[in-house]
């Protein structure tokens, strides 16, 4: 009997510690989820209509921090796993408060998300069909895989890699990088109006596009390529100031 109680206790404690490493919150009435982080952010889909933050196995809280709260840029840890989650109207604002702790966040596929990496963190978003805004403000890379919706992505020194699923909406897609390469894969049959431009980089593509002749008028950003593919459609604008651009058929 005592042995059994011990096992039960152990299980209970195990469940509690396990629960501490995950954080969930219902997404009822939430239109946008905004995430800001210094470190890497990985965004994945799941089927429940709730926010799930997996913080990974090891959370080392310094002995001296006992009874204290983690405070960082953007808020106070109210999840016990180093994140601050605050609801502002129909927007849920999430801050990763640890400077170098990777965050793995799960959201329903149709959720509109805006992710910002403020330092070295990479942004990886996989499988979302809602609107996506990704901004790597300093050195982070942006990698968007199997996305369908309107995408607005920007990076400074990092690369911008986007692999589109089926693109059917009419809201524009905008992908800009200053020093990194812009690498985009698009289904071959996507109806779109493309605008590609680089200042110091080169454009490589297997789509049928060519530079526009503007009767001697040079565009401000040096090289402007405008083309409509498959009869024209959603406006896709890509720009890299110093990096190369790769546009691939998928």
């Amino acid at each position: 009997m005592r042995k059994f109680t011990f096992i039960l206790m152990a299980l209970f404690v195990g469940v509690i510690t396990n629960a501490q490493s995950d954080y969930t919150k219902s997404l009822n009435g939430i239109q946008w989820v905004k995430i800001e982080s210094n470190a890497d952010i990985i965004l994945k889909t799941h089927s429940a209509n709730e926010l799930l933050i997996k913080s990974g196995p090891e959370i080392k809280i310094p002995e001296r921090a006992k009874g204290l709260k983690l405070v960082g840029e953007g808020g106070t840890d109210n999840t016990n796993i180093g994140f601050s989650v605050v609801q502002d109207g129909n927007t849920l604002i999430i801050h990763n408060l640890r400077k170098n702790k990777k965050g793995e966040i799960y959201l329903p596929a149709s959720q509109n998300v805006a992710v910002k990496s403020t330092w070295n963190g990479d942004i990886e978003i996989d499988g979302f069909s809602g609107e996506i805004e990704a901004d790597a403000q300093l050195n982070g890379n942006v990698k968007l895989l199997n996305v369908n919706g309107p995408v607005t992505a920007n990076s400074l020194n990092g690369e911008l890699e986007v692999v589109f699923g089926k693109v059917t909406q009419d809201s524009p897609i905008s992908l800009y990088s200053t020093n990194g390469a812009v690498d985009v894969s698009l289904p071959a049959d996507t109806p779109a109006n493309l605008a590609l431009s680089t200042l110091n980089g080169n454009v490589y593509t297997d789509f049928e596009v060519q530079a526009e002749n503007k009767d001697g008028l040079k565009s401000v950003l040096g090289r402007d390529i405008k083309a409509s593919i498959n009869g024209g459609g959603v406006k896709i604008s890509m720009k890299s100031t110093n990096g190369n651009m790769y546009l691939r058929k998928k």
């Binding site: 995408v151 524009p172 406006k235 604008s237």
Partner: peptide
């Protein structure tokens, strides 16, 4: 609009 894509659409 709250959405950046929609704001870009507006600008366009």
């Amino acid at each position: 609009n709250q959405s950046a894509s929609k704001r870009i659409q507006g600008v366009n």
